[in-house]
């Protein structure tokens, strides 16, 4: 993962980017009705998989825009980077599951 492909800027050095953890965790809407357990789950609990991981990245020292990435956490290999609004690219080898 020495080079990261920013969906806006193209290939850039990894030192320009920062990772911000698991992606696709929607912010709850009915927050007033949430229990402590639901809040804990939303704020702190993560899948932390050994394998493919969808995660948020920020191009700090570039366009300063957020995007998502699909990356393998053992090989650190990026499968794809994609804009927030883009459809999720499939996980390799799993028949197109996204």
């Amino acid at each position: 993962m020495f080079i990261i492909n920013c969906p806006y800027c193209g290939d850039r050095d990894q030192t320009e980017f920062s990772c911000h953890g698991e992606a696709h965790i929607p912010r709850p809407t009915e927050t007033a009705k949430m229990t402590d357990d639901e809040w804990g789950e939303y704020v702190f609990f993560r899948t932390n998989p050994k394998g493919y991981h969808r995660e948020r990245w920020l191009h700090d020292h570039g366009c300063r825009r957020w995007f998502n990435a699909l990356r393998h956490t053992v090989t650190d290999e990026f499968v794809a980077t994609y804009k927030i609004e883009d459809p999720r690219p499939p996980i390799p080898g799993e028949g197109g599951r996204s």
Binding site: G21, G40, R46, T47, N48, P49, K50
Partner: peptide, 18 residues
Amino acid sequence: GHSSVIAEMAGFKMPLEC
């Protein structure tokens, strides 16, 4: 470092990132 992996085997999540 593999605590999340063990937790997944047991069917729950942990508040951990590696």
